[in-house]
Design a protein around this nucleic acid. Structure first.
Length: 254
DNA sequence: ATGGTCGTTATACGA
């Protein structure tokens, strides 16, 4: 079973890349983030023609997430219960007996900002959702753009990044509170990959110079982790003309 | 040199 996460940074702009990539990689489940489109604007027909059903939690201009699978995901839920938020960042569903949670975590802008406080509140509510999903489903995979680099090694330049947004200790502690549920980071379990970064800033020729961070993650319950055979970043779509600033991350389960 | 580049029913703002 092949499961992938990809922040596409506008689905309408990236649809040709997505369709080519689906044909190439043939994933069973895909979590998309930053659709930047409404449910009404979502390209259901194009994806169905490519062999994928979609459950969508869309929003105009910002945010928006979707789950793609060969068969329509079951028991789909949206957003975070008890967390009053107009931003569409979470969608969950069950595919082939695996509970999937797909999230676009708040960026946070800068440590100490209002958006940073919102990020930490979001992460606390997200952890509560994941605790409930963990209790209800033994096979659980949590994926998405977490906007958190877990360790200094997950940055191209720790001296530049430590303590800054995406790399501050409260953000990392919030991620540890999630992995302590427990949900293992697929990156830590699989054979060491050639590259670990998943996002490169559009500015300063970040991708060409490999000035990246590892901020997109796939976390697995113990029973799902026992099935993990691989973790990798697919940098091919990031090399194309007019790419997303994120690359897809793909795991394989037995 | 205090910027740089993307995307958006934009023309400032979020990432």
């Amino acid at each position: 079973m092949k499961i992938a996460t990809w922040n596409v940074n506008s689905l309408r702009v990236r649809l040709p890349h997505l369709l080519d990539w689906l044909a190439q990689e043939q994933p069973d489940v895909v979590g998309l983030q930053e659709l930047k489109c409404t449910d009404a604007q979502f390209p259901f027909a194009e994806l169905a023609a490519a062999g994928y059903q979609a459950a969508v939690n869309g929003q105009k201009t910002y945010n928006g997430v979707a789950l793609l699978a060969r068969e329509m995901p079951q028991d789909v839920t949206r957003d975070l219960p008890g967390f009053d938020d107009a931003q569409k960042r979470v969608i969950s569903g069950t595919v082939c007996g695996v509970r999937i949670v797909n999230a676009y975590v708040v960026n946070g802008q800068a440590v100490g900002s209002e958006k940073y406080e919102y990020k930490l509140r979001f992460l606390d509510a997200f952890r509560q959702l994941l605790a409930a999903e963990h209790a209800a489903h033994t096979q659980l995979v949590v994926m998405g753009d977490f906007n958190i680099a877990p360790t200094p090694d997950d940055t191209h330049d720790p001296a530049q990044w430590e303590g800054k947004i995406l790399c501050s200790e409260p953000e990392r502690a919030a991620l540890r509170a999630i992995t302590d549920l427990p949900l293992a980071d697929g990156f830590d379990l699989a054979p060491a990959p050639e590259g670990r970064f998943t996002w490169w800033d559009y500015r300063q020729a970040g991708f060409r110079r490999d000035l990246g961070l590892r901020i997109d993650h796939l976390l697995l319950s113990p029973e799902a982790a026992a099935r993990l055979t691989g973790w990798r970043v697919d940098k091919a779509p990031r090399r194309l003309e007019r790419p997303s600033d994120h690359a897809p991350v793909i795991i394989t389960l037995e």
